[in-house]
Computed example of a mutant assay.
Amino acid sequence: MAASALISPAIHAVRSASAIVCKEVIDSHVLRIDGYSRLKHMMHGKYIRSGDFHAGGHAWRLLYYPNGSQLQFQDHIAVYLQLASRDPNDEQVLARPRFSLLDQLGNPALPHDCGMHRFSY
């Protein structure tokens, strides 16, 4: 009588999981403007660039137009966010800028959400 081997398939439960997480990074930068009235008279059609600052892992700067960036908006100020550094791994950076003027106590007033934008260097 020959011995036979009992072959039993192994039961192995395969469990797998993955996650894609997109956390919102909230950073802020304050641009203080001293001498607004004087700048308004000196800077027609020109902008002043802020110093670079870091937010969300990237370097940024603000472009401040004291007389607006277009002729029809000379009675307004304009502020633009510009990507200041290039990461070789990122061709574009997604960001959702929000701007506010600050009142005399430093509290946000007149907030403006610009929505999601793609920035490139």
Rank of each mutant, 00 (worst) to 15 (best):
D113R: 09
K40P: 00
L39W: 02
I33W: 09
Y47W: 10
R32G: 13
A78I: 07
L39A: 12
L101V: 09
F53L: 03
C114P: 00
I48G: 01
E91Y: 14
G56Q: 02
H76I: 09
G35M: 02
Y65P: 00
R118D: 05
A17G: 14
D113H: 13
N107K: 06
H54D: 08
R49L: 09
D75N: 15
G68S: 06
S100A: 06
H76S: 15
L63N: 05
S28V: 02
V30F: 07
N89S: 14
P97I: 01
H41N: 08
P111G: 03
K23A: 13
V14P: 01
H117S: 12
M43D: 04
A3I: 15
G51C: 03
L94N: 12
I48E: 05
P111D: 02
Q72C: 11
L102Q: 01
Y47G: 05
D113M: 10
M42F: 04
E24A: 11
K46E: 05
R118L: 13
G35H: 02
S4L: 12
D34H: 11
D52I: 09
A5G: 10
H76R: 15
M42I: 05
V79H: 05
H12G: 13
P111N: 04
D52V: 12
R96K: 09
L83K: 12
A2R: 06
L63G: 02
D75C: 14
S37H: 04
A109S: 11
H76N: 15
I77L: 13
P66Q: 07
Y47P: 01
R49N: 05
F119C: 05
H54S: 10
E91P: 03
D87C: 12
D103F: 00
F53H: 02
Q92C: 12
G45V: 04
G35I: 00
P97L: 02
G45F: 05
V25K: 00
H76F: 15
M42N: 06
L102I: 00
L71C: 14
D52G: 07
A10G: 14
F119E: 03
L31E: 06
A19L: 00
M42C: 07
Q70P: 02
V21W: 03
A2P: 11
D90Y: 09
H44Q: 07
Y65E: 04
K23G: 10
H41S: 09
L39F: 07
S120G: 14
H112P: 01
G57V: 09
L110T: 10
S16D: 05
R61L: 06
A95T: 04
A95H: 01
M42A: 09
A10Q: 15
L39Y: 07
D27Y: 01
Q72E: 13
A84M: 10
F53W: 02
A95Q: 01
A19T: 00
S18K: 13
H12N: 15
H112M: 10
H41T: 08
H12D: 14
N89L: 14
S100G: 03
L101K: 09
D87I: 06
D34Q: 12
G35V: 02
F119W: 06
L102T: 03
A78L: 12
P88Y: 13
V14D: 08
S50I: 03
A13F: 14
A109F: 07
E91L: 14
S120H: 15
R15E: 14
R32V: 14
S4I: 11
I20R: 10
P97E: 01
H58L: 06
H44T: 05
Q74E: 12
A59C: 08
R61F: 08
L39T: 06
Y65H: 11
R86P: 00
V25M: 00
S8A: 07
D113P: 06
V21M: 07
